[in-house]
Amino acid sequence: MKVLVAVKRVVDPSVRVRAKQDGSGVDLANVKMSINPFDEVALEQAVRLKEAGVASEVVAVSIGVREAQETLRTALAMGADRAILLEVLEGQRDIEPLSVAKLLAALVGQEQPRLVLVGKQAIDNDMNATGQMLAGLLGWAQATYASKLELAGDSAVTTQEVDGGLRKVKLKLPAVVSVDLRLNEPRYASLMNIMKAKKKPLDVKSAADFGIDVAPRLTVLKTYEPAGRKAGTKLASVDDLIQKLKSGLEVS
């Protein structure tokens, strides 16, 4: 069974992102970029499925600018068999989840995987949409926030993190599963695997060749910093704390 994993190149989670003073966006000059942490979990799961003999091939795919090849090399070093970049132009850097889902759907048509794994959200736009949109476009079953995933025959059984607790659902394959952080702990790629990854196939295709309209539906008018909070006062005792607790509840 072929598994397709979509990975996105995002700002590293340790970077403190700031809005530019002029409101034109966030300042991303010279910041460290990484694979989206949720996508890393998705990829780890696919590799484990292959190691368990359930998946026959793991294909990592990214939609983005040329530099996203680095992200795909990371995916290959972690254990993906091959990688595909659907390259977009520099001006399409912030390609929207709807367009990403359409491109992925077209690629699914070519590659015919039985399972697509994605991270539940990208930590840059925090939109939480691509997996569900892809499932909708394909008419496939979907699971979101998966913290467990088991494949058996023609179905996948997932445990999902929902409001109030956990929910177990059986999906008919083919399906799209968006994964949560507690599904697994991604491995570090060994130096040997990083070297090997350089020789694994990485196809670069032009996203434009798919003939899909990727013009954004949302225009960003302004980007600004939220109102900040200031450090308050340090309390000396539990007595003080009780007093502040009570006044906090009265004022509001």
Binding site: V17, R18, A19, T219, T223, Y224, E225, P226
Partner: peptide, 14 residues
């Protein structure tokens, strides 16, 4: 909000 609430975007949908 975007970037874990580090910034807020005002967006217009067409």
């Amino acid at each position: 909000p975007v970037y874990a609430g580090s910034a807020i975007q005002t967006i217009k949908s067409r």
